[in-house]
Amino acid sequence: MSNSAEDYSYDYEYLFKIVLVGESSVGKSNLLSRFTRDEFNIESKTTIGVEFATRTIEVDGKRIKAQIWDTAGQERYRAVTAAYYRGAVGALLVYDISNSSSYEGASRWLSELKDHADANIVVELVGNKSDLNHLRAVPTDEAKSFATEKGLLFTEASALNSENVELAFQQLIKAIYDMVSKHQFDMNDYGNDNKPITGGQTITLTPTPKDSKIKKDSCC
């Protein structure tokens, strides 16, 4: 994985915008840095505003670039949150398994997503800090059933020891991809010329906000 823009900016077929949301200090930034740079910073500070990172992965032979927005957990400006969610096709809703209030905040974030984000947005619930199992405050099953209930992807991960971090992102991106492929197929049926482009060109999923009937591809 390289950070150099020249290396791969032309070398992807899909660009997905994914947002990282969740309460403050649940480990969003570290999940991101673990995924994009394989780094973990024990002294990481509260994110101010928003941070960006990208990583390209391959799904079904397609190169997909994930443009991930790491948002400040305590962002209070609605207009700004709206900007964060604009055009996002995926979201990682992160909570801390050792902090029940962070889990309790998940439903609030979910409704926030509902309010601001695209209706088709694929959401994955991620219980971070799975390495702190001995301090666990949120039972896996409870979170899992909540996810099922809300149609969310679910995983528990640890940015600290890398456990399931790849998986969390991978399964989200795969889900988005599956949804997008299906959607495109649907759109093609309607004569939409927005088709998958190959040879270095890319699309972002920007379905119309009104298109709320697209079926959510939820599996877990």
């Binding site: 823009a5 020249e6 900016s9 032309y10 960006f52 990208t54 060109q201 890319t202």
Partner: peptide, 8 residues
């Protein structure tokens, strides 16, 4: 895309 830009 044209400019090969990466916000990350």
């Amino acid at each position: 895309l044209r400019k090969h830009l990466d916000p990350g």
